[in-house]
Simulated assay, not measured.
Amino acid sequence: MNLLLVEDDPLIAQGLVQALQQSGYTVTHATSGQCADGLLRAYDMDLVILDLGLPDIDGLEVLRRLRSRRHRIPVLVLTARDGIEQQVAALDLGADDYMEKPFDLRELEARLRALLRRSHNLNSDEIVLGPLRLSPFHHTASLASSRIDLPAREYEMLEALALNAPRVVTKARLAQRLIRQGDEVGDNAVEVYIHRLRRRLKDSGLAIRTLRGVGYLLEETD
């Protein structure tokens, strides 16, 4: 799962990034509202953790712009501002949850899991498609109850396909997932990883189908 953390306090951000990465999340960190707004326009994220007191545009303005684009990505507001007025303002603008600093990390992660399950219509902490089981919170995968060890990029690709199955995932969106793993990717990187995943899924009852000029979809086969 790919999270955007919008936090200008370096100590809080460092601790959160480290803790969330240890829990299996891919975390992109933005230190300002303008940076966050730009990232949300350019990339698909699974969830946003949003501070309100940012050095340029206010976190509420970031949220307003996001919802004005009719983007329903879950947003958890995490802020030192207290008072019911701030909470009501954030929720009215489309925030999905609200926590005040200081916070308990265990509660934060529990709320993240709940928001992610809700946004992806998951009934548990797993994504299940036929014989395939993925755990987004542990980055583990299994086929027919046998665990398969996937490198980070292959897992990201498979997770994106499984979350959206049987809908098509565009090549551009898959490329974004690869880029967020930290290294540069070549023009044919998506095709390379799709080829590797197809080999892993061979004779499993699942297949990745190409829709030329559109993208890829993961589907069960007869």
Rank of each mutant, 00 (worst) to 15 (best):
L4R: 14
L60V: 13
T28K: 05
T210F: 00
M45C: 01
A114V: 15
V128Q: 03
V6W: 03
R111G: 00
S119A: 04
A189E: 15
T210P: 00
P151M: 11
L197W: 03
T210K: 01
M99C: 06
L76F: 09
L143C: 06
L143P: 04
V169N: 07
F137S: 03
L63P: 00
R199K: 02
G205Q: 02
D8G: 05
A36D: 07
G215E: 03
M99P: 08
S23W: 02
Q87E: 14
R153G: 09
D125S: 10
R117Q: 11
I148P: 00
L76K: 01
P151Y: 02
R147I: 10
L134R: 02
R118T: 08
D203C: 07
H195K: 07
G15N: 07
G215Q: 02
A114W: 13
D58Y: 12
T221R: 03
L3Y: 09
E85I: 15
K101M: 04
L122W: 10
L63H: 06
M99H: 09
R180H: 14
S119R: 13
S204Y: 04
E154Q: 08
D149C: 12
E85Q: 05
A207R: 07
L4W: 14
E126F: 15
G38W: 07
D187V: 13
E126L: 08
R41D: 12
V88P: 01
F137N: 04
K202R: 09
E154D: 09
R212L: 04
D149A: 10
L143R: 10
K202Q: 11
R180N: 15
D37T: 09
L112I: 15
L63R: 15
H29G: 12
D9M: 12
K101I: 12
E107C: 04
M157E: 03
I208S: 00
R41K: 13
A207M: 13
M157L: 07
A152R: 00
R212G: 10
L122I: 10
M1R: 00
V75W: 04
T210A: 02
T210C: 02
L50K: 12
G53V: 14
Q181M: 05
L129A: 14
T28I: 12
R118Q: 03
R180L: 10
V17Y: 00
L4P: 15
N121R: 12
C35M: 13
R173A: 04
R65C: 08
